Amino acid sequence: METDSNGPPKNTMTETLFVVFLRMVAISCFWFGMQYWALLVGYSGGGGARFDMLDPAWRAACVSLAVVFPIAALGLWLVVSWGPVIWACAALVQVLMYTVWRDIFGNNLTVPIMHAVILCVYALFRIALFLERREKAGRVSSGLP
């Protein structure tokens, strides 16, 4: 972040877009979490998929993801370092659910593809931020503004 002697730090366009991206992912994580909670308490699915009616595998997955996704959403929204880590854990569980254990959880390729796209965009942002900071450090060490 660049600072100006007369004001708060100035973010670059890449940093601003990265924060917007993380907050969009946070909203989707919150949505996923609320969907799992709605399923567990019987609000969605006509009450046919309440916690007490689920198979043990679905119970474990739904309860875990109902807790982990809102925590990931908070971390992503606040742009703290643990947010993407918690998201990655939740995403990995969902990807495993719908690819490796599809005979138990069903075949839903939309979710793994969505997580893969988010991971790729996240990686591109991190690379862009790294290159931007490296270029800025090179300018500072050479005495350029």
Score class of each variant (00 low, 15 high):
57 A>K: 08
32 F>M: 05
48 G>A: 14
45 G>Y: 06
83 G>F: 04
66 A>D: 04
32 F>W: 06
85 V>R: 12
33 G>W: 03
64 S>L: 08
71 I>K: 05
67 V>T: 05
70 P>K: 13
48 G>L: 08
51 F>T: 05
77 W>F: 13
47 G>V: 07
47 G>W: 09
85 V>H: 12
62 C>H: 15
64 S>G: 12
75 G>V: 00
68 V>H: 06
51 F>Q: 05
56 P>F: 09
32 F>E: 06
85 V>A: 15
33 G>L: 03
56 P>Q: 07
69 F>H: 15
40 L>E: 14
80 V>W: 05
73 A>R: 08
64 S>E: 04
60 A>D: 14
55 D>S: 14
49 A>D: 12
43 Y>A: 11
49 A>R: 14
78 L>P: 06
52 D>R: 05
61 A>E: 04
82 W>S: 08
64 S>M: 07
61 A>R: 02
56 P>K: 00
46 G>F: 09
40 L>T: 07
63 V>I: 15
58 W>C: 05
34 M>P: 00
82 W>E: 13
79 V>R: 03
70 P>W: 07
58 W>A: 08
48 G>Y: 07
86 I>H: 02
34 M>S: 03
87 W>N: 11
59 R>M: 15
61 A>C: 04
73 A>P: 01
66 A>G: 09
43 Y>C: 10
65 L>W: 02
61 A>L: 10
49 A>P: 00
77 W>C: 00
85 V>F: 13
77 W>M: 00
33 G>D: 02
33 G>S: 06
71 I>P: 07
62 C>K: 12
75 G>S: 09
75 G>W: 10
46 G>H: 07
87 W>S: 03
77 W>R: 02
54 L>S: 03
39 L>W: 02
64 S>Y: 01
39 L>N: 12
50 R>F: 00
55 D>Q: 14
86 I>V: 12
70 P>C: 02
73 A>E: 03
87 W>L: 06
63 V>H: 00
55 D>N: 03
55 D>K: 06
86 I>E: 01
53 M>P: 02
34 M>N: 04
57 A>N: 14
74 L>P: 00
47 G>H: 12
71 I>D: 01
44 S>F: 03
61 A>F: 01
59 R>N: 06
57 A>G: 08
63 V>K: 04
45 G>P: 10
66 A>T: 01
52 D>Q: 15
50 R>Q: 11
43 Y>P: 00
65 L>S: 03
88 A>G: 03
57 A>R: 07
58 W>K: 04
45 G>F: 03
88 A>R: 04
31 W>C: 00
70 P>E: 02
77 W>A: 10
69 F>C: 10
66 A>M: 04
83 G>L: 00
55 D>I: 15
55 D>C: 07
37 W>S: 15
49 A>I: 07
68 V>K: 07
78 L>K: 15
32 F>Q: 05
45 G>S: 11
66 A>L: 04
73 A>C: 01
47 G>Y: 13
